[in-house]
């Protein structure tokens, strides 16, 4: 077994650092957990202690509950765990998302969690961290995924909103409640019309504001008085609200979904929304390859997504690459 493998192992509860006796994003409750971010497939409740980035403490607490013991550290600060030096570095995925850097006896491992390279006004930008061994996601690990400029997508979104207003239709925009929704809110022009939110989105909007992220004024749909005119409104809701009685109140409306999956016509049509906006909080193919190169790592573990193609690509580029299992695997339509 080589030195970095000793530093990081895949166990039945997820990635484990034996020297430091802690798990990273464990799949089941453990004694000591280090978390990359607050999405449900990474932050599972029930562990005794958590280490996470200070920037995301509020949103994480909403996921883990008020009782959870969370040690929140600033990006870049080093923590010692039984001789393993642990530090967290921005992953650019959502507020408080972190890459976990482990250093032990001169060997450096980085577990990226989910990440993106594009700028996002609601979280710290991705920081490349040099290492020997890099663990990367691969949600969009195929070259067909190539994100357009965010500004272009936001322009399209504005045009869609204004177009709906002209036709007297409400604009119902589906976005993942943690991260994507706030990124959209921070990117759009609030002078176009009133902005309303679904409760699941608004709770996290409050946490973001609490963490000091400026967001435009929003109002909860559930608090709208009877007879509210929705025809000029933008309503931001989680995808699970689609085709439920909840959306009936808006009358005439146009629906849209903001996700990296909207890059594919098939997923766009299957969602049966009127519009798809290609906006992802994950790295596209080019950004994945770029990020892996920048680390200088010789060993790469690939999880979560199109693992096999990315592994083969890296092997053909001369790296030692391996696909590792992710516990919570799905098509991931909501990302």
């Amino acid at each position: 077994m080589t030195a970095t493998e000793a530093l990081l192992q895949l166990t039945r509860d997820g990635l484990f650092c034996p020297a430091g006796r802690f798990w990273i994003d464990p799949w089941r409750p453990v004694e000591r957990a280090v978390l990359t971010h607050a999405h449900a497939d990474h932050a599972r409740p029930g562990s005794e202690r958590y280490l996470a980035a200070a920037e995301g403490e509020l949103v994480l607490r909403r996921r883990l509950g008020p009782e959870a013991r969370i040690e929140a550290v600033p990006y870049g600060a080093e923590v010692d765990r039984d001789g393993v030096r642990v530090s967290l570095h921005p992953a650019g995925h959502v507020l408080g998302s972190a890459q976990v850097r482990l250093e032990h006896r001169g060997q450096v491992c980085v577990v990226s969690g989910d990440y993106k390279a594009a700028a996002d006004p609601t979280c710290a930008v991705f920081e490349p961290v040099a290492c020997h061994h890099f663990v990367t996601e691969s949600t969009f690990g195929l070259p067909v995924f190539r994100w357009p400029e965010t500004a272009e997508v936001v322009d399209e979104l504005h045009a869609w909103w204004r177009g709906n207003q002209e036709q007297g239709k409400a604009s119902l925009l589906y976005a993942y409640a943690l991260g994507k929704a706030q990124r959209l809110l921070a990117s759009i022009d609030p002078s176009i019309g009133p902005i309303w939110t679904h409760g699941a989105v608004e709770n996290l909007v409050e946490d973001y504001r609490g963490a000091g992220v400026p967001l435009p004024p929003t109002r909860r749909v559930s608090e709208a008085p009877d007879g509210t005119d929705w025809s000029r409104a933008l309503v931001v809701a989680p995808p699970s609200a689609h085709a439920t009685p909840w959306m009936r109140r808006f009358g005439a409306l146009s629906t849209a979904f903001a996700s990296g999956w909207m890059a594919l016509r098939g997923t766009r049509r299957r969602r049966s929304v009127d519009r798809g906006f290609v906006l992802s909080d994950h790295a596209d193919w080019g950004a994945l390859i770029g990020a892996i190169e920048q680390t200088g790592a010789q060993r790469v573990w690939v999880t979560h997504g199109y693992r096999e193609p990315l592994v083969r690509w890296l092997e053909e580029a001369g790296l030692e690459a391996r696909a590792i299992a992710a516990r919570f695997e799905s098509e991931g339509d909501d990302r």
Partner: peptide, 12 residues
């Protein structure tokens, strides 16, 4: 091979 992987994912 990577083209085929892409085709498999896209379906069209």
């Amino acid at each position: 091979w990577l083209f085929e992987e892409c085709y498999d994912a896209v379906g069209d």
